[in-house]
Amino acid sequence: MSDPWTWHGGGLEAAKRRFGGADWIDLSTGINPHPWPGAATMAFDWQRLPDTQDLARLEAVAAGYFGVDARHVCAVPGTEIGLRLVGALIGGPAQHMAPGYRTHGAMIAGSAAVTWPDMGDRAGHLILANPNNPDGRALAAGAMQDLLERRSGWLLVDEAFADADPASSIAASAGDGRRLVVFRSFGKFFGLAGVRLGFVLAPQAIVAALRERLGAWPLSAAAIAIGTAAYADAGWIAAARQRLGEEAAALDAMLVRRGHRPVGACPLFRLIEVDDAHALFERLARCAILTRPFADQPRWLRLGLPADAVALERLDAALVDG
């Protein structure tokens, strides 16, 4: 199986070159197929540098959304960069939950993989996602608080998929005196991954160190304006959460009818287990449907949320035709 599809979601152009065809359905990522619509109507002055006051307003609006004081919020140009910068700041020893996001194992040199429910050495730092990717496992807020209280090292929590159901989020606990760093992603829930916007919620000392490393103008004016407006759009956010839940239920029902057992608590994607996931990946790709296989888990296939009933019906037909 080629790296473009097993390394991460996406790779649609590579799939077109490999399999041909047109009118592709990209289910390889866990990104909301219904993006926040306001970005399409916004205009930007590309001749001006981003304003520092606008950046501060974005962080204040995002802080209110996360339920944390703005002093503990640092906007970053994508969560990937935030993870790696914090990893370099904190150092080891560390452990990361597996299976999980590849960067979790790379952000601190020498980090050792541990599996759920084994949390490994409580004295070291622990890196995990909640909800997790790719299996969608979600820990309740109480369980996350217990993890924070039991460890003497830092708890580093990637909440990239927490927006769809924030009940399990530990973001509001970020602050001084707590060895907790929370990472939040804008692009997944708001469906605008190309904006490249994320946030690090941490003690003020970590926030200050991040700002020093990011330097002046860490975000584009477009990212600042889009993020500020989207996080303030409470009506769209509530409607999106309801819609995603309903569409995930429809996907689950279809998969069950086709003999699969969908796994995952995050409505943006589901994981299924089959005898040969790579063969199913290729069969769906020949129907112009891109999914996500895994090099180290040959029985796993992850499917993102279809954008509409037509896409769901095409996926249904492709699963039957095999």
Rank of each mutant, 00 (worst) to 15 (best):
M1S: 07
D3R: 05
P4G: 05
T6K: 01
H8E: 03
H8M: 05
G9I: 08
L12Q: 04
R18A: 08
N32I: 08
P37Y: 09
A43H: 12
F44V: 09
D45T: 06
R48S: 15
D51V: 00
A56L: 11
L58G: 05
V68H: 00
V68R: 06
C74D: 02
P77E: 05
R84V: 02
L89S: 00
A106S: 12
A109C: 04
S111K: 06
T115G: 03
L126E: 04
P131D: 07
P131Y: 03
L139Y: 14
R151L: 11
D163F: 12
A167I: 03
G177D: 06
R178V: 12
R178P: 02
K188G: 01
F189D: 06
V195A: 09
P203W: 05
Q204A: 13
Q204C: 06
A208M: 00
A209R: 09
L210N: 04
R211C: 03
W217D: 14
S220A: 12
G227L: 07
A229Q: 12
A229R: 11
A239R: 13
M254G: 07
R258H: 13
R258W: 02
H260G: 00
V263Y: 13
A265C: 11
A265K: 15
L271Y: 00
E273K: 04
E273G: 00
L280G: 06
E282G: 03
R283L: 06
L284A: 10
R286W: 13
R286E: 14
R292K: 14
P298R: 09
D308T: 10
G322F: 05
G322M: 08
